[in-house]
Design a protein around this nucleic acid. Structure first.
Lengths: 352, 352
DNA sequence: GGCAGCATAGTTAACGTTTTCTAGACCGAG
DNA sequence: CTCGGTCTAGAAAACGTTAACTATGCTGCC
């Protein structure tokens, strides 16, 4: 800690001067990619320590061409689903020696575009977009443009938990089997004997997550030779309050439902609240299932049957595939499995 | 979108050539800090669009001296407390036109140091450290060194939810009143008439968060002329499982407790589970309170009385103060208030 | 002893910006 | 008609690093 000069950051030149060598030699000692005599190395390392020198990542990136940076663009940091995917992204990025840039857009699509542009300026090696999006033709085309735009600067668009945007667009896609999970949960409830199963949170058919889950739900019925009664389908948003309100409405309509599937665990927690309030027992009177398997779901009362998503694995794969896209050129589209986690909130329907 | 050349990123030179001007002029058009004729501006902007040009943030940082980057170092991304503080940090960083680097150390102190070093390389304008730390003399001294080290490269250490490290160390500190919140919750329970209040999660007295909360708890008793019975103090870690186990142990010891304070809401959720399992009703038989006011706490059964921490405000203030440390030079140490949120898990003790 | 070849170190030119500093053109005033 | 001033534009240097050359001693071999 001796000899540190306050005020301005030391550079290789300062270190070189202190060690009595050239800047090149300092660079070589630090990089370790060129033979340097033991005595010189020692002097340089000593000078580095004395001056408390750290390399300037910007300058290095400028000449080296790579920033060792991965960007992670997400709706919100809070919310267990995003947090766990983010955890996976950050973990893998760290494991690969990369640093992680995080930005949130709070659902604003324009802001999302701005952020992608910002990440392009930042030269991020990969730009991971998390969460479902719209699947309108305009949106898909815009995404394809972004993908090409990023490719042009040597970056890579990664869609995480969002379906692909066409075969020609240069993007890495890591999905989970949204539709399959919904199919499985419908199948499970139908196998228990339920025939009047409500689906809460089906608004926004343009939204990829919503539609995939509802499609799986429908297909589950079809597999049992049944169709979904539109009277049992409720809309709403992805929050708890919505689940609560929609369920109250369903109860008021006296639909004869014996089970409810919430489009997310959070929605399902609202469903539970409404059922409890109506004096109905879960699962004795009504079964309830959710989707996402967030940590909270095991703590609900009763513990929630739900569909497990491999959150962290999703994030990790996203980064891994994107950074090694040369090695994994063949499969830049991954579909991770989902499965039903059976807890205490589901049971066979009562007789009669 | 016409005329884009694939393969390599366009530079100012390319744009300049396309527009028939010099690189300087392009820079000036983009920065808007120098008079440029309308026709020239138009041609330049046209070229920018045609080539799909974006500036190179690294090169700009190299010459400009500032990276417009804020670093956020945290134990984990998951866990509502950290997520909400992170939300605040990211929000304020965005509002100030900064980009946010996020790293996690999973409780590894050496890793934390590595990350700080990495952020120094990255030239982050501020490095925000979140969560409680140790308060051993060595740790404090090491933090002070880091603070000076960061200052030397023009960066700023920010301690968020962690007490200061001495008056001479150049650091920004944003705390919340940990001790005061614990005092308030103890006071509240004592005022309800409780006299046998257990404290779960008091291990690691070196940890700043733990000790501050326990101190407040003790002072609350003192204010009522009481002392804390050591038999009512249980150790353990910050997770749900620990709360569950410690509570079972307390119950087994037959301590006559009528209320339990969990050191965090997560711990309190374990406390609730253990009490329910023992057939005790909350709050009729035993009152329970937590700390942190994470979103989950309102959904527990019963809804948890807890101490609210201004999570997002904590993160926002951290960034704001650090970036404007010249303007806010006088108060680089902020203490945000906490308060008890009374829900359904607390009530007066039963008679007798 | 002279020379190929290796080990070590230095010089110089990039990388893509911004920021001086310099310079031409045009204008109105004297 | 010329001269100071205002607009506008370009040339060159700088930011901190690395990589491609270049240069110096050595060692060992014929």
């Amino acid at each position: 800690m001796a000899g540190v000069s306050l005020g301005s950051r030391p550079t290789v030149k300062d270190v070189a001067a202190a060690a009595g060598v050239s800047a090149t030699t300092v660079s070589r000692v630090l990089a370790g990619n060129y033979p340097v005599s033991a005595s010189t190395r020692k002097r340089v390392l000593r000078a580095v320590q004395d001056l408390d020198y750290v390399i300037n990542a910007q300058a290095r990136a400028l000449v080296g061409g790579t920033t060792r940076t991965v960007a992670f663009i997400v709706r919100d940091l809070v919310g267990p689903l995003f947090a766990y995917i983010g955890q996976g992204v950050e973990q893998q990025a760290t494991a690969e020696g990369r640093v992680c840039l995080v930005c949130t857009h709070h659902g604003d699509a324009d802001r999302e575009l701005e952020l992608i542009e910002l990440m392009r300026e930042q030269q991020a090696e990969a730009v991971v977009l998390v969460g479902g999006g719209l699947r309108t033709p305009e949106h898909v085309e815009r995404m394809a443009q972004i993908a090409r735009s990023l490719e042009r600067v040597g970056s890579r668009l990664v869609l995480c938990g969002r379906p692909p945007i066409g075969p020609d667009a240069p993007a890495t896609v890591v999905e989970y089997d949204n539709e399959g999970g919904a199919f499985a949960v419908a199948n499970y409830l139908l196998s228990l004997g339920h025939r009047r199963i409500a689906f809460v949170g089906a608004a926004e058919p343009e939204h990829t997550t919503t539609s995939a889950r509802f499609d799986g739900f429908t297909r589950g019925h079809a597999a049992h030779g049944l169709t979904v009664d539109p009277a049992l389908v409720a809309g709403g948003t992805f929050d708890r309050e919505s689940g609560y309100r929609q369920t109250k409405a369903l109860l008021a309509r006296d639909t004869g439902m014996t089970a409810v599937v919430g489009i997310t665990d959070i929605v399902a927690s609202g469903v539970l609240a409404a059922l409890h309030e109506a004096g109905l027992r879960v699962p004795e009177d009504v079964s309830v299932a959710g989707y996402d398997d967030i940590p909270l779901s095991a703590d609900l009362n009763p513990a929630l049957t739900t569909v497990h998503i491999p959150h962290e694995e999703l994030g990790r794969s996203a980064v891994r595939l994107a950074l090694h896209r040369d090695d994994y050129a063949q499969d830049q589209h991954l579909m991770l499995g989902t499965h039903v986690v059976i807890r205490k909130s589901t049971a066979p329907p009562r007789e009669g």
